[in-house]
Simulated assay, not measured.
Amino acid sequence: MAGSRQVFQDASGEQVQPVQQGEDPALAPFLQTLDDHISAHPEQLQPLTTDLMAHLDNLAGAIHVDLDAPLETDGEEDEDCASL
C-alpha cells in the first residue's frame, strides 16, 4: 500500500499523488466537462417530462433499483455475476 510520503510518476514523468480509497480519478474531470458543456449550451437542457420518463422506463424494462438499499462493498460478489 502506498504511504503518504511516496511519490509516483506517470508515463510522462510528472509527479502524481496516489489515489485514496473511494476516490475516482475520472469523476472530477468528467463533472468539469459536464459543467463546461452545460454552461456553454444551456439551451440543450431538457426538462424531465412524463413522456421522457415513460420512454426511459421503456428502455430500462423491468429493472428495479432500490435506491434505499446499501451499496455493496469491495469483496462482495453480485449474485448475478457469481456464476460467471
Rank of each mutant, 00 (worst) to 15 (best):
V19A: 14
S12A: 11
T33Q: 10
V7G: 02
S39M: 03
E23V: 07
F8M: 07
L31T: 04
T50P: 00
Q32G: 02
L67E: 15
L48A: 00
L45K: 06
L67F: 14
S12K: 13
Q21E: 07
G75H: 01
L34Y: 15
E23C: 07
T33D: 10
Q21C: 05
Q17F: 03
D80S: 07
M1W: 06
L59M: 14
L84F: 12
D74A: 07
T50W: 02
Q32M: 03
Q9S: 09
A69H: 03
D80P: 00
G75C: 01
A11V: 07
D51T: 08
E14P: 04
I63K: 13
E72V: 02
S83V: 08
D80R: 08
S39I: 00
P25D: 12
L27E: 08
L71D: 15
A11S: 11
A62T: 10
F30H: 13
Q46T: 03
P70L: 01
P18A: 02
E23K: 13
A54Q: 13
M53A: 05
D51M: 06
A28S: 14
P25E: 07
L52R: 06
E72M: 13
G13C: 10
G75S: 00
D68H: 12
P70G: 05
V65M: 09
D51I: 05
Q15F: 07
A26C: 14
A62K: 09
H64C: 08
Q44V: 02
P29S: 05
S39R: 09
L34E: 15
E43C: 06
A26H: 13
D36T: 06
A82E: 14
A60L: 13
A26K: 10
G13P: 06
I63Q: 15
A54K: 08
Q32A: 08
D66Q: 05
D66G: 01
L48Q: 00
V19S: 11
D74C: 04
P18S: 03
D36L: 04
E14N: 11
Q44K: 12
C81Q: 12
L67C: 14
P25L: 06
L34S: 14
Q46F: 04
L31F: 08
H41R: 10
D66E: 07
E23H: 12
L45C: 09
L27W: 10
Q15R: 15
T50C: 00
L84N: 09
V19F: 15
